[in-house]
Design a protein around this nucleic acid. Structure first.
Lengths: 215, 215
DNA sequence: AGAAAAATTGACGATTTGGTCAAGAAATTC
DNA sequence: GAATTTCTTGACCAAATCGTCAATTTTTCT
């Protein structure tokens, strides 16, 4: 226990403080941005929320926008993780179940990040770079191709893959972005793990029965 | 042409100017609020957007919050219109089709209002009064009962009605709230009527095949 | 037409905003 | 342990913020 303390401090000596404080700032910022958007969030609020003086924040980030775009960049990396479940080789039943499960799991464990992203989309996505926009587009296109393949092979009913994906995305995303609405609908104070499991079951059931060919 | 001018001015002489200007203000405000939220929208922006001097806005609305809550109240009145299609007497197939169609139609024709509402929900719905919250809850509960009835009568598969409704709501709402995302997914600049029709077809198909008992 | 009420608006004020700066405190390096 | 780099922070600024007000113009009423 005593010897263990010096080991981690050796690990990254020149970046320890910076990494810790940047993390603090970003964590406080994503929470506020996710609720009030870019224009609605004051840098003083971020400072107070993470317990650092405002001037210190400007030591790590040159502007408010820099904080915001850093968050976008960081979150976009995990954005399409769930889509990796959708592959041409896989059986649609399995692939779609896995996707819904993964997406709901992400929604539950990263409510704030999901909401931040939703807020940026509501705004029209003006802070996204052209490259980031294209990335999203390409990722979607790939998966749309997979679904098109499934349709061609008669593995699922003939449906518009684009709108099909929007259905999936919208439904799963909803539980993070509009957690309060979902809670009201379910007549609960907040969503529990059980609620997410019930959601998963219902969504998978409807989606699968809704797109698989009559057996 | 000359005689027609005096007729409409007789109609509501004491409220004409007020009504017109309040409408102008609210229209400009809902647009801005829908993009940037309450905190992110400046009253000067609203003034500029509706072509009235800022001081004039404060003649009609005492505070920024007054504008915002007026909008909430006004929009909440149309919020549950689409749900009226869901009645116990009706056949699930018809009722659900009608609901999806109505909801998508509303999303298409009232993009701004839908997005405004979504923004308020993202915020956590803090500007909603307790009565308004209860209203939403009761409306939902009624329709959940209808679906429960359908399940009991074997008209649809056994599913959790709450999550089923969330699916419907999330999917249809998506096309208004995240129009930009939908447009990117569909690889278009903006959504056309055709896109909404394709969305409707896909959603209805999946939802109906997904919940109707095997025929 | 003239009085009364409603509507308009430029100028203003207290407060808050994003961001700067320079002086000092800690940590790191040699 | 001294030099150097990194980090911290109170004080500050120009611009923007919400909201006020009193003087004026327009509309309505009789």
């Amino acid at each position: 226990m005593a010897g263990a303390k010096s080991a981690p401090s050796r690990k990254a000596p020149e970046e320890r403080i910076r990494a810790r404080n940047e993390a603090k700032i970003l964590k406080a910022a994503v929470e506020l941005f996710s609720r009030k958007g870019f224009d609605g969030t004051r840098t003083a609020e971020i400072a107070e929320a993470c317990g650092l003086p405002k001037a210190n924040i400007y030591y790590y980030f040159s502007t408010k926008e820099a904080i915001y775009t850093t968050l976008i960049e960081r979150l976009l990396q995990g954005w399409d993780k769930a889509l990796e479940h959708i592959t041409a080789e896989r059986d649609p039943r399995e692939a779609l179940s896995a996707y819904v499960a993964a997406k709901l799991d992400y929604s539950r464990r990263h409510v704030v990040e999901s909401r931040f992203f939703a807020n940026e989309m509501l705004r029209g996505g003006g802070f996204l770079s052209r490259a980031q926009r294209r990335h999203m587009q390409e990722i979607t296109r790939e998966r749309v191709r997979v679904v098109e393949g499934w349709v061609r092979d008669g593995k699922i009913m003939p449906i518009d893959p684009n709108h099909f994906f929007i259905m999936l995305w919208a439904t799963t995303q909803f539980y993070a972005d509009f957690a309060e609405v979902a809670a009201v609908t379910l007549e609960k104070g907040r969503l529990s793990l059980t609620d997410y499991e019930a959601a998963q079951k219902t969504i998978v059931k409807v989606i699968l029965s809704g797109c698989l060919p009559a057996s």
